[in-house]
């Protein structure tokens, strides 16, 4: 299972946001392979934004994200509210089988063994016997279980879960947490947005406390202290329509060389040069051949 040994996420002074307003502001962190990280913080703290950035759905407006080279389908991202169309006439089996996309692609058929794995995944989330049910007949908790079964089949070394426990009853949450802990034991790297701090303290060894600014990152007990939580609450102020340009000094970030030989970089995509204070300096991208930005160098 050397697929599972790979990930290690490096965030270099990362700023993500919408319309130049940062939602995640100057975040630098190194997430080791195999970590189980709870991303916590008040509403509007940038938790979902961070996951979107990691999943490649949002380009950084400053800094960058360095991921190791993952195999195809090596990153599984479960958004908070999928764009799932519940009225679509597909069965639970079909939905879970979608998790095998990286094996069967657009045209491949399901082998007997793969069908068995789909059924096993459904059984593992406590939904054996639901194979033929239309997806629209499931309750919220059952649908979430089915999404977890699909995720299980994706067999990804890096898993991003955005509020997987929102509006789910406690028994289902317990079952889902068990699954996540199982994936952790298998060595997968997992980032989960969680709101219930008790749950975080009980199950998650590492926590990242965000409030647009990074507040703390490390062992959960050291992160979730009353002082730090209070600071996170203070920081979570409204999006200021007329915010001034940010002029935090750019750090010249040294590059950790052992990230993998050909890391992917979600390069800062657009427009950060026009007056946005923290146009990142990328000495590393010029000097070292190792971290190869995917889409060209920053424009100046």
């Amino acid at each position: 299972m050397n697929r599972l040994a790979l990930p290690m996420i490096r965030l270099d002074n990362l700023t993500l946001g919408y319309d130049r307003h940062p939602a995640v502001h100057h975040l630098s962190a190194e997430i080791p392979a195999g970590a189980l990280v709870a991303v916590v913080g008040p509403n509007g703290a940038g938790k979902s934004t961070l996951l979107k950035g990691l999943a490649g759905e949002l380009h950084p407006i400053g800094g960058r994200i360095v991921l190791p080279e993952l195999p195809a389908g090596g990153l599984a991202y479960m958004p908070q509210r999928g764009e799932i169309d519940h009225s679509f006439p597909v069965s639970v089996f079909d939905v879970v089988a979608m998790g095998l996309w990286h094996e069967i692609g657009a045209f491949g058929g399901l082998s007997r063994e793969q069908r068995g794995r789909v059924r096993a995944a459904l059984a593992a989330v406590g939904m054996a016997g639901f194979e033929a049910r239309p997806i629209g007949s499931l309750s919220g908790g059952q649908l979430q279980r089915a999404r977890f079964a699909r995720l299980m089949l994706q067999d990804a070394p890096l898993i991003l879960l955005d509020e997987p426990f929102a509006a789910i009853d406690s028994r289902t949450v317990d079952d889902l947490v068990e699954l996540i802990l199982g994936w952790h034991d298998e060595g997968r790297t997992i980032l989960t947005v969680v709101h219930d701090l008790e749950q975080v303290r009980r199950h998650f060894p590492t926590a990242l406390l965000l409030s647009r600014e990074p507040v703390a990152f490390g062992p959960t007990a050291e992160v979730l202290t009353p002082e730090r939580l209070a600071r996170a609450r203070r920081l979570s102020e409204a999006f200021d329509e007329h915010a001034h340009e940010c002029h935090i000094e750019e750090l010249t970030v040294a590059v950790a060389p052992d990230v993998g030989t050909h890391p992917h970089t979600h390069d800062d995509g657009h427009g950060h040069t026009e007056g946005h204070g923290h146009a990142p300096v990328h000495p590393a991208a010029h000097a070292h051949p190792a971290p190869r930005p995917r889409r060209g160098l920053p424009r100046h």
């Binding site: 999943a55 759905e57 389908g73 990153l75 599984a76 991202y77 958004p79 999928g82 764009e83 799932i84 169309d85 679509f88 597909v90 939905v95 979608m98 996309w101 990286h102 692609g105 657009a106 997806i135 699909r150 994706q154």
Partner: peptide, 12 residues
């Protein structure tokens, strides 16, 4: 694409 476009974008 009809049922869950976000998932399809994620895997392919």
């Amino acid at each position: 694409e009809c049922f869950d476009p976000a998932f399809l974008r994620g895997v392919s």
